[in-house]
């Protein structure tokens, strides 16, 4: 067995890597959305209501990608 095969060998279901990839984007996205909302509420607490709705729609769009990404496990072997 040559060195390349030993170093680059992957066992198990490659779809598992997809879980990780599907988690990266939404994690960063929700982190930014929530972080910016905290910043906004800290600056102007009286705007909390409006900022919450914007945060909610931001999270909804971000997590939609996550749901579809993770659920591709259903159709890809």
């Amino acid at each position: 067995m040559d060195a390349t095969t030993v170093l680059a060998e992957i066992n198990g279901n490659i779809a598992t890597v997809g879980y990780g990839l599907a988690a990266i984007g939404p994690a960063i996205g929700v982190g930014i959305v929530v972080g910016k909302t905290i910043e906004g509420v800290a600056r102007q607490p009286e705007l909390a209501g409006r900022l919450q709705v914007l945060m909610w729609i931001g999270i909804a769009f971000t997590e939609a990608l996550a749901f579809i990404g993770i659920a591709t496990y259903f159709i890809f072997v």
């Binding site: 909610w56 729609i57 909804a60 939609a64 749901f67 579809i68 259903f74 159709i75």
Partner: peptide
Amino acid sequence: DTTVLFLSLVAGVLASLVVDV
């Protein structure tokens, strides 16, 4: 049927986004 499940899941997610907007 997992294919039908996936397709209806995508449809549900999109419909939910439309309702939110």
